[in-house]
Amino acid sequence: MRKKRTKTKVNKGSMILLIAFSVIMLFPFFWLIRSALMTDREIMTMPMQWLPSRPMFENFGEALTRAPFFRYFLNSILITGVNVVAQVFSASFIAFGFARFEFKGKNFWFAAILSTMMIPYTVLMIPQFIGWQTVGAYNTYLPLTIPAFFGNAFHIFLVVQYYRGIPKDYDEAALVDGAGYLRIYTHIMLPMIKPVLCSVGVFAFMNTWNDFLGPLIYLDKEMMKTVSLGLQIFIGQYTSSWNLMMAASCLAIIPMMIIFFFAQRYFIEGITFSGLKG
């Protein structure tokens, strides 16, 4: 009896703390939406006005016309789409080699590829930029898409871990049946590793959609810019139109939110997996 009471007390305490922290976490979102729906004048009233007197949905339309956001969206969708497909394909392909074969030099290359996770992007950015510029790929989407076809260390690691959980009997049985390794990869392994590929897909989506530094150094033409880059320029141009800036930010966030609500478990599973096995 007594035990039960202390337990509910503890839970009540955690509940109160959780709610308090959650309110703090949510405040920036409240601020974002509240400001996106206000007029200029309302934002500048003193003392601060908490809510708009009438939600100004027009702000979204206004933000969309002030900068070619539709174009930015299309560009981001294109780059992100290519990256998601390429990352899922390359990670599963490369990881298959690391997880299902025993051969000389395997551990060396695995360690080499994993070690690239420690290299800051700022270090690679200068030589990569010069390389892409030399081959005439400045102001194209090549620097932002081609590397995805050669695998990302973190994604390869995730998929290798997943492959290791699948018994080798599957491969051996298929070999005995006369299937080649390519066929084992496409017909037996790919269907079995779908969950981890979904995680790779959502991570690739998130990283590409949110990427700022890459587009910043490679894209100069207005009509080629991505949402993140366009938003940054918007912030620079409309420094005092906070309501429009917040409306534009809302728009940039929406696609990530949609992906999150449809694929929440793949985000969580992917992270969980990386942390526990890392």
């Binding site: 490369i94 080699g97 395997k106 290359w109 590829i113 050669f150």
Partner: peptide, 12 residues
């Protein structure tokens, strides 16, 4: 094995 990890090596 090398056939499959080749893209990773090239990327590296």
């Amino acid at each position: 094995g090398y056939f499959f990890i080749a893209p990773g090596i090239i990327g590296f």
